[in-house]
């Protein structure tokens, strides 16, 4: 299996052709794209790519090439790949949702509660439109977590700020939204 060597992140004003240009430069360098996640947040294109570069790659030259092809104003970072802490053993994945009035510090309040109980955000999407906030996160929780209490604390934090916060096991959403849903895929 090809091991990752570098992490490439790019943020820039969105425009057509960014991925085509990026991938062309990477291909010319002999890079292999191993994992990629891209989204547009408001007007900003943002991408994170895990790559395997040939051992003789000059990363400074590659960065400069990437910068040049994407254009001025872009943030391009090419960092050595490091392994993270291992995933929580036997952890369960939950979906955290918050919907309601936006208020300063609410994301911090919610994320702190999750962090205090040993939870880890693995995916997060948060949008504010006018005065309303909509947050959806996928969270890993250790099996020992006192779920009742965490749910109560999250609901309480939300109520104080005018939000409805819910924490529900992700299998509920798989079951109701995916045609293929098997018990054994747990």
């Amino acid at each position: 299996m090809t091991e990752p060597t570098h992490l490439l992140t790019v943020h820039t004003l969105d425009q057509r052709g960014i991925i085509a240009n990026l991938s062309e430069v990477m291909e010319l360098q002999g890079a292999r794209l191993l994992e990629l996640s891209q989204t547009v947040v408001r007007d900003y294109f943002t991408i994170i790519i895990i790559v395997a570069l040939p051992p003789d790659t000059n990363t400074e030259t590659l960065s400069a090439q990437l910068h040049r092809i994407i254009g001025p104003g872009a943030a391009v970072n090419l960092l050595p790949y490091q392994t993270s802490h291992p995933p929580l053993p036997d952890s369960d994945r939950y979906i955290l949702t918050a919907l309601g009035d936006d208020s300063p510090g609410i994301v911090h309040d919610i994320s702190s509660l999750i962090a205090e109980r040993g939870g880890n955000f693995v995916d997060l999407d948060c949008r504010v439109a006018a005065t309303r906030i909509r947050l959806v996160a996928e969270i890993e929780l250790p099996p020992t977590v006192a779920l009742d209490q965490l749910q109560i604390d999250l609901e309480h934090a939300g109520q104080t700020a005018g939000l409805q916060v819910r924490l529900q096991h992700q299998r509920l959403f798989q079951a109701t939204n995916q045609v293929l849903f098997r018990r054994i895929s747990r």
């Binding site: 979906i95 949702t97 919907l99 995916d123 999407d125 909509r134 959806v136 996928e138 409805q164 819910r166 529900q168 992700q170 509920l172 959403f173 798989q174 109701t176 939204n177 995916q178």
Partner: peptide, 16 residues
């Protein structure tokens, strides 16, 4: 992750 819209659709079934 499952789309946010789909998640809120499921929640709406229970909540409202």
């Amino acid at each position: 992750m499952i789309r946010g819209d789909a998640i809120f659709e499921t929640i709406r079934m229970f909540q409202e």
